[in-house]
Every structure is written in C-alpha cells, then in structure tokens.
Nucleic acid binder design. Structure first.
Length: 278
DNA sequence: AAGAATCTCAACCGCACCCGC
DNA sequence: TGCGGGTGCGGTTGAGATTCT
C-alpha cells in the first residue's frame, strides 16, 4: 500500500504557469501569507498541485529573488560551499541571499561543473582530476536513511588518502568561518607515499563566509540558518570529540553512543561530520 | 535559410523528514 | 510507538532557446 497522492492528478494543470495563474498565486500569498500548500490551490482557485504552487512561489515569484547572472564572487562561494556541503543545494542557497536551491543546482550543473573541469578539478571530490580519477569512483549522492545528515566530505578517496578535514569551526555574529585543513601527520602514514597536498593540492578551501547586508529580519533568519546547520566535530590529539555530548577519544570507525546526531565520526581516514539540527 | 545539435532552466517526481495524533 | 499527512529536498525531465553546420 503506497501513500496517498499529494493531489488529484486528473484535475490539476501541469507544465508552464500562465500569467493569470502567477497573479492568482501572488495575490493569494500577499493576502494570506505562505504555508498550508496543500489547501492553497483550492483556496486560491488554482488547478495546481500544492507542491507545484510552492515551487513556483519559491523559485520564481518570491519578491526577494535576485535573478540575473551569478557574480564571480557567488561562483567561488558556491564552489567552496559545495566542497564543504556536497549537493546540499538548500544549505548552499541559504548562504546566497536571493538565490534558490533550484537555481544554484541548475547553475552548478550547467556552468560550474564545466568551469571546474576546465581547471582540472573533479566537481564531486574537488580534487585534481588526475589524482581523483585514478583512485575514485563516482560519489554516490543519493539520499539514504543512514547518512542523510552526513556531509559528503567523505569523498571517494581510498582509505590511504586523507580527505580534507574541518579542524575547527567557529561561528560568531559577524561571520561563519570554516577552516579547512589537512592532517599532514596522518597523511605521512599513507603507504602510497603521497601527501595530502599531492592528492588534493591547495584548492583554496579556507572559507570565510561573511553575512551579506540584509535587513534585520533577514539577518535573523540567516543567523538561525547558520546556527541550525552549524558544522560540528573537533579533532584533538586524543581523537575526535563528540560535540553532541562532549565525549572524547573516538577512534577510527567509532561513533558516539549519545546518538544525538551531533557527533562526528571517522570513516577510513576521512572524518565525517554530522549536522546539528537543534 | 534551415535543420541538427546542444544548452538552459522551469517544473515534475519520488523519497525522506518532521510532527501531531 | 507507530502511522499518516504535510512539507522540503535533490535528481531528473523536457520544452524552448540558442548555437552550430
């Protein structure tokens, strides 16, 4: 038994939205606000699925959308954030005011992938293509119930290679500074003899994401997003600290028993960090 | 000028998560 | 605790636009 469909397929329009439909949707949301998408089409007199209305509003009709070409700064920010977050388009979009996840996803697939390839960088692993292609398989970005909150920092590098690690995360009122660093001590253990820098040379991944100039409400929203998805996990000389419960000293392959989803863990030599969703 | 090939991006689909009951 | 409804996310599709031959 499958779940019931989100709407009656027979009596809903599909495909491109007409001007009249757009106006109806805009007027309705202006009057009643966002929310309750399932009942919205009926209330607004639209022969559309609620999901379709939501998508149309979020991706196209919202008044705060920037639209237009991406700037070079936005390009670089997307690349850096993708290196940290993987295909988490909504998280990336949250750090680019006026841009939608769909827009960024499309832009990534049509422009940035090519841009990185032309630089000789694998768009999935953010490593040099020569090194990555010799040792990696395509990263599986399909969502799974087991690791849906795991950052795809794990890359597909063999266990002998060291993936970039977030050694420290720091958030304050002004900025979200995420430092990327490599662990040269561990990489020296690699029997391949390759240093981290050889596998993943300086990709300029040190990231400083400043909050853009926003009105107070937007700033507050942005700040909440940053806090909601604060990256956790801290490596010390004693191992990895679980930032869910502050337990210390985890070894390879171990996970904290607190099951708080706030812990970090190690897989192979790549550290996986989990989101904190307070 | 016209047909083919390629690109772009709005929209759809299915799945997973969250939350109330 | 399990179930089901509502919502959000990420992958994919396909129509229209653009470029190439």
């Amino acid at each position: 038994m499958g779940r019931s469909p989100c709407c009656e397929k027979e009596h809903t329009n599909k495909g491109a939205w007409s001007k009249e439909e757009d106006e109806r949707l805009i007027n309705y949301i202006k009057t009643h606000g966002e929310g309750c998408w399932r009942s919205l089409p009926k209330s607004a007199g639209l022969l559309r699925c609620g999901k379709s209305c939501r998508l149309r509003w979020i991706n196209y009709l919202r008044p705060d959308l920037k639209r237009g070409n991406f700037t070079e700064e936005e390009d670089e920010l997307i690349i850096n954030l993708h290196g940290l977050l993987g295909n988490k388009w909504s998280l990336i979009a949250a750090r680019l005011p006026g841009r939608t996840d769909n827009e960024i996803k499309n832009y990534w697939n049509t422009h940035i992938k090519r841009k990185l390839l032309s630089r000789g960088i694998d768009p999935q692993t953010h490593c040099l293509l020569s090194a990555a292609s010799a040792t990696t398989t395509p990263t599986d970005n399909k969502r799974s119930s087991n690791n849906s909150h795991v950052l795809h920092l794990k890359t597909s590098l063999t266990p002998l290679m060291i993936a970039p690690k977030i050694q420290d995360t720091h958030l304050n009122d002004d900025a979200c500074n995420i430092k990327y660093a490599t662990d040269s001590a561990e990489s020296s253990n690699s029997s391949s003899g390759m240093t981290t820098e050889e596998v993943c040379p300086d990709l300029n991944l040190e990231l400083s994401i400043g909050l853009p100039h926003l009105n107070q409400a937007s700033q507050q929203q942005q700040q909440q997003q940053l806090i909601s998805y604060q990256l956790l996990g801290k490596k010390t000389s004693h191992g990895v600290v679980c930032l869910g419960c502050s337990s210390l000293g985890f070894q390879n392959g171990q996970e904290c028993n607190c099951k708080s989803e706030n812990n970090s863990s190690i897989m192979g030599n790549a550290t996986l960090f989990r989101y904190c969703r307070p």
